[in-house]
Simulated scan of single mutants.
Amino acid sequence: MNISKHIEYTLLKPTTTEREIIDLCYEAIQNDYYGVCINSSYVALARQLLENSPTKVCSVVGFPFGAMSTDAKVFEAKKAIEDGAEEIEMVINLGFLKSKNYVSVLKDISDVKMAIGNTTLKVILEISELNKNEIIKACEICLDANVDFIKTSSGFSKGGATLTATKIIKKTIKDAAKITASGDIEDLETSMKYLEVGVHRIGFNALLNKKTKKARPIS
């Protein structure tokens, strides 16, 4: 099975250079990946590089901690779309969630969703920081905010995707939203396990390609 169209090729390290973004986009085109996921400062460059390609540009906003003001996230999201982003990812406000300030969590997500209209919105839960009940509650809030995707992890916390947490997400949201599994997924075999439990996309760190040949989840 060729799973290229499920792959979100990701490069979000703060020291990412223009050359690395060029390489990222070239490899995404070459391997027919679904899209690239990058910081908002490089959206315009990526859009130019991918102009004649079906590969999508996804930009993160309020990244990686999700603790920025909602207004800041809204501004960054709108600017990213103006620069050519076709999908937006934001990290859920973990502090609000841990405080059980669910109204503020919902407002944070809803304001971004309203600001970007029909543009796809993904919300990163950061599952390594949450217990089962918090994952369920976060998913319920995301559904109330009409998000398009729920993503497991940012890659900047203490752990990435797990099958257990992914199954909890899937059981909670059913088919009301889609799932992106990201973090600690390094090969075809692992990717397939996530797709089998209902994941729609796999976040694949481009840096792994530079370190190990096994880290290419393509048949």
Rank of each mutant, 00 (worst) to 15 (best):
23 D>T: 09
56 K>F: 02
56 K>R: 12
204 F>G: 00
33 Y>M: 15
188 L>Q: 13
151 K>S: 09
100 K>W: 01
196 E>V: 02
82 E>N: 08
152 T>N: 06
52 N>R: 14
141 I>N: 04
16 T>P: 04
200 H>G: 04
86 E>L: 13
26 Y>Q: 08
43 V>K: 03
207 L>F: 10
201 R>F: 00
215 A>I: 00
193 K>P: 00
195 L>E: 00
183 G>N: 15
203 G>Y: 03
40 S>E: 13
81 I>V: 13
149 F>Y: 11
170 K>H: 00
2 N>S: 12
171 K>S: 07
218 I>H: 02
72 A>Y: 10
92 I>Y: 05
186 E>P: 06
178 K>A: 04
166 T>K: 00
86 E>C: 05
12 L>E: 07
29 I>Q: 15
139 C>A: 08
146 N>W: 12
101 N>H: 07
36 V>E: 03
130 L>W: 11
209 N>S: 11
39 N>Q: 10
30 Q>T: 13
111 D>W: 10
205 N>W: 11
72 A>P: 09
137 K>E: 06
198 G>M: 01
177 A>R: 01
24 L>G: 01
5 K>A: 06
114 M>R: 13
196 E>K: 04
28 A>Y: 01
42 Y>L: 15
75 F>S: 10
205 N>A: 15
70 T>Q: 11
99 S>H: 14
21 I>F: 05
114 M>Q: 10
164 T>G: 00
25 C>F: 04
97 L>T: 07
76 E>C: 12
133 N>R: 14
73 K>L: 04
117 G>L: 14
171 K>Q: 12
62 G>T: 03
14 P>E: 15
28 A>D: 03
38 I>C: 07
174 K>M: 15
83 D>V: 11
21 I>L: 03
131 N>D: 10
143 L>C: 02
31 N>H: 15
144 D>I: 04
50 L>H: 07
4 S>I: 03
52 N>W: 06
146 N>Q: 13
180 T>N: 13
121 L>A: 14
175 D>W: 14
25 C>M: 01
217 P>I: 07
219 S>R: 10
12 L>T: 05
76 E>M: 09
172 T>Y: 08
8 E>T: 00
187 D>L: 06
37 C>M: 14
197 V>G: 01
192 M>P: 02
26 Y>T: 08
92 I>G: 08
38 I>M: 11
58 C>N: 04
27 E>R: 12
41 S>L: 14
106 L>P: 07
16 T>Q: 09
4 S>A: 15
17 T>Q: 04
77 A>Y: 02
